[in-house]
Amino acid sequence: MRRAFETLRDKPWIWSFLAAGLVWIATVMVTGGASAGGLTHAALTFAAFTIIVGIGQMFVITLGPGNIDLSIPATMTLAGTLALKFMGVQDGLILPGLLVAIGVGLAIGIANYGLIKLLRIPPIIATLSSSFIIQSTAIWSNRGLRIRPPDSLGAFTTSSTLGIPNLALVALALTIVAWILLERSLYGRWICAIGQNMRAARLAGVPVDGVRLATYTLSAVLASICGYLLASFSGGAALNMGAEFLLMSIAVVVIGGTAVSGGFSNVPGIWGASLFMFLVVSMLNTYGLGAGFRLIMTGLIITCVIIVAGGRRSTAR
């Protein structure tokens, strides 16, 4: 029994999957098993979006205390809006549309780090301020008719392959890339070094500014890809489409087992946490509890997890 507990404690990502599983069971029980398939399908679809932005947020948070990207929702909105506008419902422009979205992400990421580095603005404030400017740009560029996504793209995002939603497959592919980056690549080592001790990292030859720039850009690019997909999935880019993803992106990082103090990240945990968060919402809906309870539960879960997980290491200073 003790060994089982220790194994569980050593692999923090297991918690989130366990929790997700429990909630799934609780939800399915209410309908007597009839909704199992539909619930799983919906969970995978909607969690996919949270996973994609969660990965970006995870990279940024791993950079160390104080690093966070609050411009994710605005980036999603702007990228989705501009990409759909560019594609103009034409199938042939699907890939260029994706490139436009990625381009938006690149520009925002670089601008964010420019504010952080050149103007020495703390990341919280830099990304918060830029998010307002980005949001305004999105609002301004979205004047007019609601543009639909190209038909093939819309179909792609709403259908499945071998029973698994395509969006989940995309999220899976991105997760694998992220995992390789963090666990196996030079860049991943550098991020974790900076997150544990930025000064020691610099003194050990890690190009701190370059890595941070790349990370903030990566987060913005993932957010824009997510915006591109979400806008296509929803049949158009709404101005508030990114709203709930801000807290969600941070929540799935924290609940998934990544250290908020930096230096340690947990990629599989993001899946467990995303599924868990969606299932909690579904469960509450199934039990007839409204939006208010959903918000409260979400907030309490996050707050409790972070309180239990604890904060900055006291040795690092």
Binding site: P65, I68, I124, L247, I250, A251, V254, V260, S261, G290, A291, G292, F293, R294, L295, I296, M297, T298, G299, L300, I301, I302, T303, I306, I307, G310, G311, R312, S314
Partner: peptide
């Protein structure tokens, strides 16, 4: 006491306050 980052804690609490507000005035 727990040495927590205030950003994350207050962000979590913002959902709690928001939910309570919705409960009171849907």
């Amino acid at each position: 006491v727990r040495n927590l980052p205030s950003i994350v804690v207050t962000l979590g609490m913002s959902f709690v306050w928001g939910g309570l507000a919705v409960l009171i005035l849907p």
